[in-house]
């Protein structure tokens, strides 16, 4: 029973060994001369906040919202592309309608200015 899980255990052990090995080699062999600029926190896009618990920039959320929609489009397109030869014209038309509806949403976003950063 439990013997079936042995490969997973071996995998975990090896992963642990390799990971710790690499990190320790990096620490030991790499050059290290820190200064204040290197140690200070840096975040792309906006100034680091004073309070580290309150990181919130609305613009990232807008990008996230838009991303999710088009992310899923791909999730539907891939399986569709695999079987396109079998489902024929009906499948093609169905996907065209699906993309058309998505495009309507995209035009709406664009016109409303949701794609602009500022």
């Amino acid at each position: 029973m439990l013997i079936e899980y042995l490969p997973i255990l071996i995998f975990l052990v090896f992963a642990l060994i390799f990971a710790s090995l690499m990190i320790s080699v990096g620490f030991a062999a790499g050059p290290s001369n820190p200064d204040s600029e290197k140690n200070s926190p840096y975040e792309c896009g906006f100034d680091p906040f004073e309070d580290s618990r309150m990181k919130f920039d609305v613009r990232y959320y807008l990008v996230a919202i838009l991303f999710i929609i088009f992310d899923l489009e791909i999730a539907f397109l891939f399986p569709w592309a695999v079987v396109i030869h079998e489902i024929g014209l009906t499948g093609l038309l169905a996907m065209a309608i699906f993309l058309l509806i998505l495009t309507v949403g995209f035009i709406y976003e664009w016109k409303k200015g949701a794609l602009e950063w500022d």
Partner: peptide, 13 residues
């Protein structure tokens, strides 16, 4: 309904 929603959304823009 779906068609008219899409069309009205675009017209309204």
């Amino acid at each position: 309904i779906t068609t008219s929603m899409s069309v009205i959304l675009l017209i309204d823009l």
